[in-house]
């Protein structure tokens, strides 16, 4: 991805010094969508954290006598085919989705960064091999690789998260690698090296902060897509399994009767939509803030 590598080149200088706060203030004023997205996202985070206190019912309590009730004062969003309170389940589902987003992006970064660092640091054959491996992963169509990996390791929320992380890490490896390579080439001519300063140290101290900005941008953009992908995997039955509380799984479970009881599907579906939209707006905003060159619609 030549664009990615080009991005890495231009990030750091624009983002230092006393201008920072001024820029953030100016940015917030001129990006209402970012503010809306961030607000919604924070509300979702709080709701997820406070789920046990906000929830009106036990999300797992099955009560067939109350099954498939329409939204009411008792059940804000109605009940599902097992009589479980959908409002409470949607709340708890937020925990799952946010957790999936954090874990998958975190794992991808955790695998990708060291790999990119090692590849760029050692260079030569190690670099080639590692990047070839990354290319193999990147050669896959987006949702298909997680599906392939789950095919190999079996269904389940944890497996789906591993599968998603494995399909995502090469992006971070590339970002890290190009950042290190750049620092390396700068060091090559710099005095620090000539004076015999431990250049491994210098390199890591320079390369990691340099890579941070593109990693944050990429991570915030990936977060929403990961949530969406995980919900899709759960929906087709290869992600979360009962008794996990997951939005995609909730929609899938009500597939048989959703035409007559649309709220059973629409509530979790809408929850996914709102969450992903909010996350994407925040991600776009973060990218515009950290990477002014990308103001355009990428």
């Amino acid at each position: 991805m030549s664009t990615l590598e080009a991005d890495v080149g231009g990030l750091a200088p624009a983002w230092t010094g006393a201008h920072r706060w001024k820029r953030i203030r100016h940015f917030v004023g001129s990006h209402p969508l970012f503010v809306i997205g961030l607000t919604v996202f924070l509300v979702i985070v709080v709701a997820a954290l406070a789920a046990p206190w906000i929830a009106t019912h036990d999300p797992l309590a099955i009560k067939f006598s109350e099954k498939l009730q329409a939204p009411s004062a008792e059940h804000y969003l109605g009940t599902d085919s097992m009589g479980r309170d959908i409002f409470s389940r949607v709340l708890y589902g937020a925990r799952t989705s946010l957790m999936v987003g954090v874990v998958v992006v975190g794992l991808a970064i955790g695998i990708g960064l060291p790999m990119g660092l090692l590849a760029a640091y050692f260079g030569g054959r190690i670099d080639t091999t590692m990047m070839r491996i990354a290319d193999v992963f990147l050669a896959f169509p987006p949702l298909l690789l997680p599906i392939a990996i789950t095919a190999a390791i079996g269904a389940g929320l944890f497996h789906a998260m591993v599968a998603l992380a494995i399909s995502w890490f090469p992006w971070y490896a590339r970002i890290m690698r190009s950042s290190v390579l750049r620092v390396k080439s700068e060091l090559y001519v710099s005095a620090a090296r000539a004076m015999g300063v431990n250049h491994t140290n210098v390199m890591i101290r320079h390369a990691v902060p340099n890579a941070l900005t593109p990693v944050v941008v990429q991570g915030s953009l990936d977060f929403g897509y990961v949530i969406l992908a995980a919900a899709s995997l759960s929906f087709i039955g290869i992600g979360a399994q009962p008794p996990d509380i997951e939005w995609g799984l909730m929609a899938a479970a009500e597939r048989a009767k959703f035409l007559d009881f649309p709220w059973t599907v629409l509530c979790p579906g809408l929850a996914i939509f709102v969450t992903v939209l909010a996350v994407n707006l925040v991600g776009d905003g973060i990218r515009d803030l950290l990477d002014p060159k990308h103001q355009e619609f990428k």
């Binding site: 929609a251 899938a252 599907v265 629409l266 579906g269 996914i272 994407n280």
Partner: peptide, 12 residues
């Protein structure tokens, strides 16, 4: 549009 899960679009 990109925030919509595929299955919800289909079910809608």
């Amino acid at each position: 549009g990109v925030a919509f899960p595929v299955f919800i679009v289909g079910m809608l």
